[in-house]
Design a protein around this nucleic acid. Structure first.
Lengths: 207, 207
DNA sequence: CGACCGATTGATTTTTGTCAACAAAGGTGG
DNA sequence: CCACCTTTGTTGACAAAAATCAATCGGTCG
């Protein structure tokens, strides 16, 4: 990744944006598109830690250090802006506002990661999938990235859902089919609609 | 939890030290004993997020905010020191050394949580248990809390291991029995020894 | 003593993964 | 534009992993 500040970069779908091992001189912020942050295991399987949407800092912790075996990959075509790492770090230590902004981001990320731990540790496969979808829809709503009341563009493949929920793609497929059969959601052609929000939240064990 | 700074508090095993909902005026640091941080689910099951050993700050994020449904519980008798939250926060924003100390703690915690995500999402039950045990032994070694080369005091009950690894106590029991049968570990009377470190690490898929 | 907690074990069920086959969609190079 | 190849989604049969249920037993603590 080039180190030039402020320049907008474009990455095609399925390409890697950065790896934990890279010594990063810049911190990317997503401008458009979806990305994922994941850990690769030696056996070839992987665990997605988070999905990154426009406005997301690519791992706040990258400000300080990198992480082994973790990487960020584009799901759709992604554009991002690279900010100078040292400059950001400087801003954080000198400006209180920047510091608390960072603290808030860290906080949100931490909370999301811990919710993921709870989901993976203590919830059923269908709960995990439903919660993942609802969480993403809520984040898209916050960004006004909706195409209808409960309808959004949804570029994830079933294997993304599998890698995020700790399941196999085949099993994800079967459970999504079941959600469709029960008319809780509609999902086709990269478009998702939650048809029965109340019932779907119930399936996710929310509210 | 009283707000008096620097005072050492004592909590009996199985008692709650603090809850996320509490508006905390102080931040506890464990002086002796083991504690756990966990999330409770409505159905009564729970997910342990981390075990706290002497020297650990009870959730660095408590410096800024609290978290719903998460709580800290004593496993053994625990003593902790309560530090004033605002003072600590002040120190962090004014002293660079304190700031980077906090950043490092945050970092370690983040890394551990993400490793937990990977374990829960992508590893088998026996790998999870072995990794949990090895991680704890390593942390105890760092603190010189060992009673032999690969031997430590180990106050966890099987249900603690179950709640940390997202398994049932019954299943944990069976897998621990298998580790014992294979003579990888010895575990009885709150004492743990890793008899065959190489084989046990292999079971954990480490190194 | 009696109640509870924790560990253990076996039988059985549920959940999830694996394997295999196939079809639709989409991109690529000729 | 077509032929080919890869990716993605789908389905069914079967296997493995883990949960559930149930019973027992030994401590520990009022």
């Amino acid at each position: 990744m080039p180190a030039i500040d402020q320049l907008v970069h474009t990455v095609a779908a399925r390409r890697i944006i950065c790896r934990g091992q890279d010594d990063l001189t810049s911190v990317p912020i997503i401008c458009s598109g979806w990305a994922l942050s994941a850990v690769m295991l030696p056996d070839g399987s992987r665990q997605i830690l988070s999905f990154l949407l426009p406005g997301d800092l690519v791992s706040p912790s990258l400000l300080f250090d990198s992480k082994p075996d973790s990487f960020v990959e584009a799901i759709t075509t992604v554009t991002y802006r690279a900010f100078n790492r040292l400059n950001l770090r400087q801003a954080i230590t000198t400006e209180p506002a920047a510091f608390s902004a960072l603290a808030r981001m860290w906080f949100r990320e931490k909370r999301r990661t811990e919710e993921l731990v709870v989901d993976l540790g203590r919830r059923s496969a269908s709960e995990r999938i439903a919660r993942l979808i609802i969480g993403l829809v809520e984040r898209l709503q916050e960004r006004s990235m909706t195409s209808g009341p409960f309808e959004v563009d949804f570029p994830l493949r079933q294997h993304h859902i599998a890698d995020a929920t700790g399941l196999t793609p085949v099993h994800v497929n079967k459970l999504l089919s079941e959600f469709r059969r029960k008319e809780l959601i509609r999902l086709s052609d990269r478009s998702l609609a939650i048809l029965d929000p109340a019932a779907f939240r119930a399936a996710a064990n929310l509210r």
